[in-house]
Design a protein around this nucleic acid. Structure first.
Lengths: 140, 140
DNA sequence: ATTACATAGTGCGATATCGTATTAAGAGCA
DNA sequence: TGCTCTTAATACGATATCGCACTATGTAAT
Protein backbone atom coordinates (compact mmCIF):
# COMPACT_ATOMS: atom_id res chain seq x y z
CA UNK A 1 0.00 0.00 0.00
CA UNK A 2 2.93 2.20 0.70
CA UNK A 3 4.16 1.56 -2.82
CA UNK A 4 0.76 2.45 -4.22
CA UNK A 5 0.74 5.74 -2.35
CA UNK A 6 4.26 6.71 -3.40
CA UNK A 7 3.72 5.72 -7.02
CA UNK A 8 0.55 7.74 -7.01
CA UNK A 9 2.49 10.74 -5.72
CA UNK A 10 5.27 10.36 -8.27
CA UNK A 11 2.97 9.75 -11.20
CA UNK A 12 0.74 12.68 -10.28
CA UNK A 13 3.76 14.96 -10.01
CA UNK A 14 5.10 13.73 -13.34
CA UNK A 15 1.80 14.25 -15.12
CA UNK A 16 1.12 17.67 -13.69
CA UNK A 17 4.60 18.80 -14.62
CA UNK A 18 3.67 18.08 -18.24
CA UNK A 19 0.20 19.63 -18.11
CA UNK A 20 -0.34 23.38 -18.43
CA UNK A 21 -0.14 25.37 -15.22
CA UNK A 22 -3.27 24.98 -13.13
CA UNK A 23 -4.53 21.90 -14.92
CA UNK A 24 -4.73 18.97 -12.54
CA UNK A 25 -4.57 15.27 -13.16
CA UNK A 26 -8.18 15.05 -11.99
CA UNK A 27 -9.19 17.35 -14.85
CA UNK A 28 -7.26 15.36 -17.39
CA UNK A 29 -8.56 12.07 -16.06
CA UNK A 30 -12.18 13.17 -16.47
CA UNK A 31 -11.61 14.39 -20.02
CA UNK A 32 -9.91 11.11 -20.75
CA UNK A 33 -12.76 9.11 -19.35
CA UNK A 34 -15.35 11.07 -21.29
CA UNK A 35 -13.38 10.47 -24.47
CA UNK A 36 -12.55 6.81 -23.98
CA UNK A 37 -15.76 5.54 -22.45
CA UNK A 38 -18.46 7.98 -23.53
CA UNK A 39 -19.59 11.48 -22.81
CA UNK A 40 -23.07 12.31 -21.68
CA UNK A 41 -22.38 10.64 -18.34
CA UNK A 42 -23.85 12.16 -15.20
CA UNK A 43 -21.65 13.74 -12.53
CA UNK A 44 -22.56 10.92 -10.16
CA UNK A 45 -21.45 8.29 -12.64
CA UNK A 46 -18.14 10.07 -13.02
CA UNK A 47 -17.70 10.32 -9.26
CA UNK A 48 -18.28 6.59 -8.98
CA UNK A 49 -15.91 5.83 -11.83
CA UNK A 50 -13.11 7.66 -10.06
CA UNK A 51 -14.17 6.73 -6.54
CA UNK A 52 -14.32 10.29 -5.33
CA UNK A 53 -17.12 12.00 -3.38
CA UNK A 54 -19.84 13.74 -5.33
CA UNK A 55 -18.72 17.13 -4.08
CA UNK A 56 -15.24 16.61 -5.41
CA UNK A 57 -16.60 15.79 -8.84
CA UNK A 58 -18.84 18.86 -8.78
CA UNK A 59 -15.76 20.95 -8.09
CA UNK A 60 -13.68 19.28 -10.81
CA UNK A 61 -16.46 19.64 -13.36
CA UNK A 62 -16.92 23.31 -12.55
CA UNK A 63 -13.25 23.83 -13.35
CA UNK A 64 -13.60 21.99 -16.64
CA UNK A 65 -16.70 23.98 -17.50
CA UNK A 66 -15.00 27.27 -16.67
CA UNK A 67 -12.25 26.40 -19.16
CA UNK A 68 -14.84 25.54 -21.76
CA UNK A 69 -13.83 21.90 -22.05
CA UNK A 70 -17.12 20.37 -21.03
CA UNK A 71 -20.74 21.37 -21.27
CA UNK A 72 -23.17 20.56 -18.47
CA UNK A 73 -26.69 20.08 -19.76
CA UNK A 74 -29.87 18.95 -18.03
CA UNK A 75 -30.49 15.23 -18.12
CA UNK A 76 -33.66 14.67 -20.16
CA UNK A 77 -34.39 11.48 -18.22
CA UNK A 78 -34.13 12.98 -14.72
CA UNK A 79 -34.65 16.62 -13.86
CA UNK A 80 -32.48 16.29 -10.76
CA UNK A 81 -29.57 15.25 -12.85
CA UNK A 82 -27.22 16.55 -15.53
CA UNK A 83 -25.13 15.21 -18.35
CA UNK A 84 -21.53 16.06 -19.08
CA UNK A 85 -20.63 16.56 -22.73
CA UNK A 86 -17.22 17.28 -24.20
CA UNK A 87 -16.78 20.43 -26.23
CA UNK A 88 -14.54 20.66 -29.27
CA UNK A 89 -12.05 22.59 -27.16
CA UNK A 90 -12.15 19.82 -24.58
CA UNK A 91 -11.39 17.16 -27.16
CA UNK A 92 -8.60 19.26 -28.61
CA UNK A 93 -7.00 19.91 -25.25
CA UNK A 94 -7.14 16.25 -24.34
CA UNK A 95 -5.55 15.25 -27.64
CA UNK A 96 -2.76 17.76 -27.15
CA UNK A 97 -2.16 16.61 -23.57
CA UNK A 98 -1.94 13.01 -24.74
CA UNK A 99 0.58 14.05 -27.36
CA UNK A 100 2.63 15.91 -24.74
CA UNK A 101 2.63 12.96 -22.38
CA UNK A 102 3.33 10.32 -25.00
CA UNK A 103 7.13 10.58 -25.01
CA UNK A 104 7.31 10.10 -21.26
CA UNK A 105 4.89 7.21 -21.29
CA UNK A 106 6.83 5.60 -24.12
CA UNK A 107 10.05 6.05 -22.20
CA UNK A 108 8.59 4.50 -19.06
CA UNK A 109 7.25 1.57 -21.05
CA UNK A 110 10.57 1.13 -22.84
CA UNK A 111 12.59 1.16 -19.63
CA UNK A 112 10.24 -1.20 -17.82
CA UNK A 113 9.41 -3.84 -20.40
CA UNK A 114 6.46 -6.04 -19.61
CA UNK A 115 5.68 -4.26 -16.39
CA UNK A 116 2.26 -3.04 -17.40
CA UNK A 117 1.29 -6.43 -18.81
CA UNK A 118 2.32 -8.20 -15.63
CA UNK A 119 0.99 -5.76 -13.04
CA UNK A 120 -2.22 -4.48 -14.58
CA UNK A 121 -4.34 -7.63 -14.28
CA UNK A 122 -3.60 -7.91 -10.58
CA UNK A 123 -4.18 -4.22 -10.02
CA UNK A 124 -7.48 -4.36 -11.84
CA UNK A 125 -8.52 -7.36 -9.81
CA UNK A 126 -7.57 -5.59 -6.60
CA UNK A 127 -9.47 -2.48 -7.60
CA UNK A 128 -12.57 -4.50 -8.36
CA UNK A 129 -12.26 -6.42 -5.14
CA UNK A 130 -11.83 -3.29 -3.02
CA UNK A 131 -14.68 -1.66 -4.89
CA UNK A 132 -17.01 -4.59 -4.27
CA UNK A 133 -16.31 -4.55 -0.55
CA UNK A 134 -16.19 -0.81 -0.17
CA UNK A 135 -19.37 -0.20 1.77
CA UNK A 136 -19.45 -2.84 4.43
CA UNK A 137 -15.82 -3.83 4.55
CA UNK A 138 -16.81 -7.42 3.96
CA UNK A 139 -17.41 -9.17 0.65
CA UNK A 140 -21.00 -9.26 -0.47
CA UNK B 1 -2.17 4.84 -13.90
CA UNK B 2 -5.88 5.12 -13.62
CA UNK B 3 -5.87 1.90 -11.63
CA UNK B 4 -3.19 3.24 -9.35
CA UNK B 5 -5.20 6.36 -8.65
CA UNK B 6 -8.44 4.51 -7.97
CA UNK B 7 -6.77 1.89 -5.77
CA UNK B 8 -5.11 4.68 -3.86
CA UNK B 9 -8.51 6.30 -3.33
CA UNK B 10 -10.16 3.08 -2.24
CA UNK B 11 -7.34 2.01 0.04
CA UNK B 12 -7.12 5.44 1.65
CA UNK B 13 -10.84 5.45 2.28
CA UNK B 14 -10.71 1.93 3.72
CA UNK B 15 -7.84 2.77 6.04
CA UNK B 16 -9.27 6.03 7.26
CA UNK B 17 -12.58 4.38 7.97
CA UNK B 18 -10.73 2.13 10.43
CA UNK B 19 -8.61 4.86 12.01
CA UNK B 20 -9.96 7.15 14.72
CA UNK B 21 -11.76 10.25 13.53
CA UNK B 22 -9.34 12.90 12.36
CA UNK B 23 -6.37 10.57 12.00
CA UNK B 24 -5.21 10.45 8.41
CA UNK B 25 -3.37 7.79 6.50
CA UNK B 26 -0.46 10.21 6.21
CA UNK B 27 -0.21 10.26 10.01
CA UNK B 28 -0.33 6.51 10.27
CA UNK B 29 2.17 6.06 7.46
CA UNK B 30 4.74 8.26 9.19
CA UNK B 31 4.34 6.45 12.51
CA UNK B 32 4.69 3.19 10.65
CA UNK B 33 7.84 4.32 8.89
CA UNK B 34 9.42 5.55 12.11
CA UNK B 35 8.68 2.20 13.71
CA UNK B 36 9.73 -0.06 10.86
CA UNK B 37 12.78 1.78 9.58
CA UNK B 38 14.05 3.89 12.45
CA UNK B 39 13.08 6.96 14.36
CA UNK B 40 15.37 9.91 14.77
CA UNK B 41 14.98 10.69 11.07
CA UNK B 42 14.83 14.31 9.98
CA UNK B 43 11.66 15.82 8.50
CA UNK B 44 13.39 16.09 5.14
CA UNK B 45 14.27 12.42 5.12
CA UNK B 46 10.66 11.58 5.85
CA UNK B 47 9.43 13.88 3.10
CA UNK B 48 11.74 12.14 0.65
CA UNK B 49 10.68 8.71 1.84
CA UNK B 50 7.05 9.51 1.09
CA UNK B 51 7.74 11.71 -1.91
CA UNK B 52 5.80 14.65 -0.57
CA UNK B 53 6.93 18.29 -0.37
CA UNK B 54 8.73 19.41 2.74
CA UNK B 55 5.86 21.69 3.71
CA UNK B 56 3.43 18.81 3.69
CA UNK B 57 5.66 16.83 6.01
CA UNK B 58 6.00 19.80 8.34
CA UNK B 59 2.23 19.94 8.53
CA UNK B 60 1.84 16.20 9.10
CA UNK B 61 4.49 16.18 11.80
CA UNK B 62 2.89 19.11 13.61
CA UNK B 63 -0.30 17.09 13.78
CA UNK B 64 1.54 14.07 15.17
CA UNK B 65 3.32 16.26 17.68
CA UNK B 66 0.07 17.88 18.79
CA UNK B 67 -1.31 14.43 19.55
CA UNK B 68 1.80 13.56 21.50
CA UNK B 69 2.84 10.72 19.21
CA UNK B 70 6.19 12.10 18.15
CA UNK B 71 8.78 14.35 19.70
CA UNK B 72 10.66 16.88 17.57
CA UNK B 73 14.11 17.52 18.96
CA UNK B 74 17.01 19.53 17.62
CA UNK B 75 19.43 17.61 15.48
CA UNK B 76 22.77 17.56 17.32
CA UNK B 77 24.63 17.27 14.02
CA UNK B 78 22.97 20.22 12.29
CA UNK B 79 21.37 23.13 14.05
CA UNK B 80 19.15 23.88 11.07
CA UNK B 81 17.60 20.48 11.35
CA UNK B 82 15.50 18.38 13.68
CA UNK B 83 14.99 14.76 14.53
CA UNK B 84 11.67 13.00 14.88
CA UNK B 85 11.37 10.53 17.74
CA UNK B 86 8.45 8.32 18.60
CA UNK B 87 6.87 8.66 22.01
CA UNK B 88 5.47 5.77 23.97
CA UNK B 89 1.99 7.00 23.11
CA UNK B 90 2.97 7.04 19.44
CA UNK B 91 4.17 3.46 19.55
CA UNK B 92 1.06 2.40 21.39
CA UNK B 93 -1.28 4.10 18.96
CA UNK B 94 0.50 2.59 15.99
CA UNK B 95 0.33 -0.88 17.52
CA UNK B 96 -3.39 -0.48 18.17
CA UNK B 97 -4.02 0.79 14.66
CA UNK B 98 -2.17 -2.18 13.21
CA UNK B 99 -4.29 -4.48 15.32
CA UNK B 100 -7.47 -2.77 14.12
CA UNK B 101 -6.46 -3.02 10.48
CA UNK B 102 -5.19 -6.57 10.64
CA UNK B 103 -8.53 -8.33 10.05
CA UNK B 104 -9.18 -6.33 6.89
CA UNK B 105 -5.69 -6.83 5.57
CA UNK B 106 -5.93 -10.55 6.29
CA UNK B 107 -9.25 -10.69 4.49
CA UNK B 108 -7.87 -8.89 1.45
CA UNK B 109 -4.87 -11.19 1.36
CA UNK B 110 -7.09 -14.25 1.75
CA UNK B 111 -9.43 -13.22 -1.05
CA UNK B 112 -6.60 -12.28 -3.41
CA UNK B 113 -4.08 -15.05 -2.95
CA UNK B 114 -0.64 -14.37 -4.32
CA UNK B 115 -1.52 -10.88 -5.46
CA UNK B 116 0.94 -9.07 -3.25
CA UNK B 117 3.75 -11.46 -4.14
CA UNK B 118 3.13 -11.02 -7.85
CA UNK B 119 2.50 -7.28 -7.98
CA UNK B 120 4.89 -5.89 -5.39
CA UNK B 121 8.19 -6.49 -7.18
CA UNK B 122 6.96 -4.69 -10.27
CA UNK B 123 5.46 -1.86 -8.25
CA UNK B 124 8.68 -1.43 -6.31
CA UNK B 125 10.66 -1.39 -9.53
CA UNK B 126 8.32 1.19 -11.00
CA UNK B 127 8.57 3.35 -7.91
CA UNK B 128 12.34 3.25 -7.99
CA UNK B 129 12.38 3.99 -11.68
CA UNK B 130 10.04 6.96 -11.37
CA UNK B 131 12.00 8.18 -8.38
CA UNK B 132 15.30 8.00 -10.24
CA UNK B 133 13.94 10.03 -13.16
CA UNK B 134 11.88 12.41 -11.10
CA UNK B 135 13.90 15.60 -11.49
CA UNK B 136 14.75 15.78 -15.16
CA UNK B 137 12.17 13.51 -16.64
CA UNK B 138 14.91 11.46 -18.23
CA UNK B 139 16.80 8.52 -16.72
CA UNK B 140 20.04 9.35 -14.95
C1' DA C 1 -53.34 11.85 -3.87
C1' DT C 2 -50.62 11.69 0.18
C1' DT C 3 -46.99 10.39 2.74
C1' DA C 4 -42.52 8.65 3.42
C1' DC C 5 -38.25 7.63 1.79
C1' DA C 6 -34.35 7.70 -1.65
C1' DT C 7 -31.43 10.08 -4.87
C1' DA C 8 -28.71 14.01 -7.74
C1' DG C 9 -26.45 17.96 -7.37
C1' DT C 10 -24.57 21.84 -4.76
C1' DG C 11 -23.39 25.46 -0.95
C1' DC C 12 -20.65 25.82 2.90
C1' DG C 13 -17.01 25.08 6.13
C1' DA C 14 -12.87 22.46 7.56
C1' DT C 15 -8.47 21.00 6.43
C1' DA C 16 -4.79 18.50 3.78
C1' DT C 17 -1.70 19.54 0.31
C1' DC C 18 1.38 22.24 -2.13
C1' DG C 19 4.14 26.38 -4.22
C1' DT C 20 6.66 30.50 -2.96
C1' DA C 21 9.31 33.13 -0.14
C1' DT C 22 11.78 33.71 4.26
C1' DT C 23 14.99 32.68 8.03
C1' DA C 24 18.75 30.36 10.09
C1' DA C 25 22.61 27.58 9.52
C1' DG C 26 26.09 24.82 7.08
C1' DA C 27 29.88 24.64 3.27
C1' DG C 28 33.37 26.27 0.17
C1' DC C 29 36.69 29.57 -0.99
C1' DA C 30 39.44 33.85 -1.12
C1' DT D 1 37.12 36.81 8.39
C1' DG D 2 34.09 37.90 4.69
C1' DC D 3 31.53 36.46 0.72
C1' DT D 4 28.67 33.36 -1.82
C1' DC D 5 26.02 29.43 -2.44
C1' DT D 6 23.36 25.67 -0.65
C1' DT D 7 20.23 23.57 2.54
C1' DA D 8 16.47 22.57 6.57
C1' DA D 9 12.51 24.06 8.28
C1' DT D 10 8.63 27.01 8.33
C1' DA D 11 5.17 30.97 7.61
C1' DC D 12 1.90 32.23 4.41
C1' DG D 13 -1.44 32.01 0.77
C1' DA D 14 -3.98 29.32 -2.76
C1' DT D 15 -6.79 25.58 -3.72
C1' DA D 16 -8.17 20.58 -4.05
C1' DT D 17 -10.64 17.48 -1.44
C1' DC D 18 -14.10 16.07 1.50
C1' DG D 19 -18.06 15.73 5.09
C1' DC D 20 -22.47 17.65 6.21
C1' DA D 21 -26.67 19.60 5.28
C1' DC D 22 -30.09 21.34 2.10
C1' DT D 23 -33.15 21.60 -2.11
C1' DA D 24 -35.40 19.60 -5.85
C1' DT D 25 -36.85 15.61 -7.85
C1' DG D 26 -37.91 10.74 -8.29
C1' DT D 27 -40.08 6.40 -6.29
C1' DA D 28 -42.93 3.47 -3.68
C1' DA D 29 -46.67 2.25 -0.62
C1' DT D 30 -51.05 2.90 1.01
Amino acid sequence: MNEIGIIHQLATALFEARLPKGVLVSHFAVLNHLTRVRDGATPLQLAQAFQVPKTTMTHTLSGLEKRGWVDLRPNPDDKRSKQVWLTQAGRAFRAQAIADLAPDLARIARDNPGLAERALPDLTALRQYLDSTRDTGTPE
